[in-house]
Design a protein around this nucleic acid. Structure first.
Lengths: 325, 325
DNA sequence: TCTCCATGTGTAACCGGTTACATTCGTTAC
DNA sequence: GTAACGAATGTAACCGGTTACACATGGAGA
């Protein structure tokens, strides 16, 4: 590997001068600069970030912790984060936490060991010791904590919206699929929907689900219609489950949206390609990722940051699994 | 931050001894070890990987380069890679290349700058200088090079399979969606399908597509039926496009699979949740990721490795967009 | 002429680990 | 009694950068 010493030798200067050229710091004579730059080009040299990071006690690396990249909501987030960071010269160390606190802790530890300069995390444990003790900037993404910087969409409002829309479109026997108990955003949207149903004095049923996995989605859909065949409106916990419900309704010969309306959550990319295409509550996942990265960069590069808690709007995306008003 | 010096001071020994305890190398008296371990626990110390990495000239980091994590085929790959690496104590630096050579080059450079110990890449340019000159192990994933270690599924065979199955199930007017020209696996599967159609002397049409994006998928589907309304069999370039075709067929009042059969490619998780559920050629994405990670670890940790080129089998997944034989 | 300061460059300490080598001590073998 | 060796530990060099500091030079201003 070419090192700064090699460049110094070739250019006939000291390592300090080479360093000055690379970092455009201090005084360097124009001719000297030229010699150094030529040597750098000649050897195709690029400085070792590890050595830099050691002395400066900070790197160009940022840790990203997501529950499961396999859940189609998260690739959007990740891509948003990555795109923004990349523009600013930062790189990503990535891990899947499976919503598991131990795994999270382990990742955060190795992030720190690698001198990451900031962390973006979708965690259910924002108030755990691990995060409180972190001495580097952290942004919570899709999850919130009281005072900490975070970027999220309003789950409660999303849930309310779903309930309002499905009621406004005429469903009387609504069943809500309640997402996994340990995942906060899932509970927020559930609470929001329940609120509206209670406010309007509607009766409804709840099916409690314990995962967002593809494998089990069909299972919840089956149970739903087994237990509440009269259901004419389904508020799903996310688009995957909604898709499974759509499939099950189809299998049972129910037509959508005439017999059953279905509203999903997230607006994952495939939702618009289903037939009927899925009405859903959209979370601007890509933008959330980008915003989180922007906020983190601000926290890293500036002393004070105005807005530390960024809530992005959710919206109802009207497609074909709901009736026209 | 706690350093090895702090631990040494607290335990009343030298840094060398602390290092020996941490790394279980050399001689350490049992009592001394205990003192050091207590100091480590007391301070919740964990060694700085950056310093380690600098001296040893290698880290515990591995670079992963994928075209676009937002394409639902890749999260599976990534998860497979991550799971296996994580089990072995390695971490991932991740980047999206957008199939863009410059972006790739840039990532590879920063990977190297960060002393990554290996790289896994889904690239269309495996024979570029960048990769040839890399002095660390590299595994190509979902893409191949002549002699280099790689893990992939047989695209040509997959294409053949798709054509055979759709013909065996009675389609006479087949249209193939040809994936983006610059993406090799897409061309492989296309070639395979064409081969079979030619061998059997079937006539067919081709629609050339230029991306795998969700946004454009619907567009190709529209064009397909505009140009070849008589189509009774579609071999799609991947499951996303297949889903769009399914939607378009539905819109046109064609019943699937009676009027049109559709075969996708990849078997992304959502395929089984569509209605009708999508018949497709399955690539074992998660396993491909795991295998790539396993192979890379072998290359890193061992002198010689037997199998450097691993081809995983594709399979036809019969669901509801094809007729029964 | 002398002082002061901007410019330009080199030397060496430092970041936090690892490890080669030196040193000390106690035991064993001859 | 002493040579040889294993056990235990410390000192200091090293990894590849950055930067504080020292020093040299030359021109401007008093």
């Amino acid at each position: 590997m070419t090192t700064i010493k090699d460049i110094a030798r070739i250019a006939g200067v000291s390592v300090a001068t080479v360093s000055r050229v690379i970092n455009e710091s201090g005084y360097v004579n124009a001719d000297t600069r030229k010699k150094v730059e030529e040597a750098i080009k000649l050897m195709n040299y690029s400085p070792n970030e590890v050595a830099r990071s050691l002395y400066k006690r900070k790197s160009k690396l940022i840790g990203l912790l997501l529950p499961d990249i396999t859940n189609p909501f998260f690739p959007q987030l990740a891509r948003g984060v990555e795109d923004r960071l990349q523009e600013h010269g930062y790189r990503l160390i990535f891990g899947n936490s499976d919503e598991n606190e131990d795994k999270e802790l382990d990742y955060i530890r190795t992030f720190v060991q690698n001198n990451v300069i900031g962390v973006i995390s979708s965690t259910n444990f924002p108030d755990s010791d691990t995060y409180l003790k972190l001495k580097i900037p952290i942004v919570f993404l899709d999850r919130t904590s009281n005072e900490s910087p975070s970027v999220y969409a309003d789950g409660r409002e999303g849930g309310r919206m779903a309930a309002q829309e499905i009621i406004a479109r005429g469903s009387k026997h609504i069943t809500i699929l309640q997402g996994p108990a340990h995942i906060k955003p899932a509970q927020d949207r559930f609470q929001g929907a329940v609120e509206v149903l209670e406010e309007l004095g509607m009766s409804y049923h709840v099916i409690q689900t314990s995962s967002f996995s593809y494998a089990e989605a069909g299972h919840w859909a089956t149970i739903l219609f087994e237990q509440h065949l009269e259901t004419d409106g389904v508020i799903a916990s996310n688009d995957i489950v909604a898709t499974a419900v759509l499939q099950e309704a189809h299998r049972l010969g129910k037509s959508v949206p005439q017999d059953v309306q279905i509203i999903g959550y997230d607006d994952i990319p495939l939702s618009s390609l289903l037939s009927p295409s899925l009405s859903t509550i959209r979370q601007p996942a890509y933008d959330m990722g980008r915003e989180a990265a922007r906020l983190l960069i601000e926290l890293i590069e500036q002393d004070k940051v105005d807005e530390k808690i960024i809530q992005l709007p959710v919206s109802f995306v009207e497609r074909e699994t709901t009736r026209r008003k």
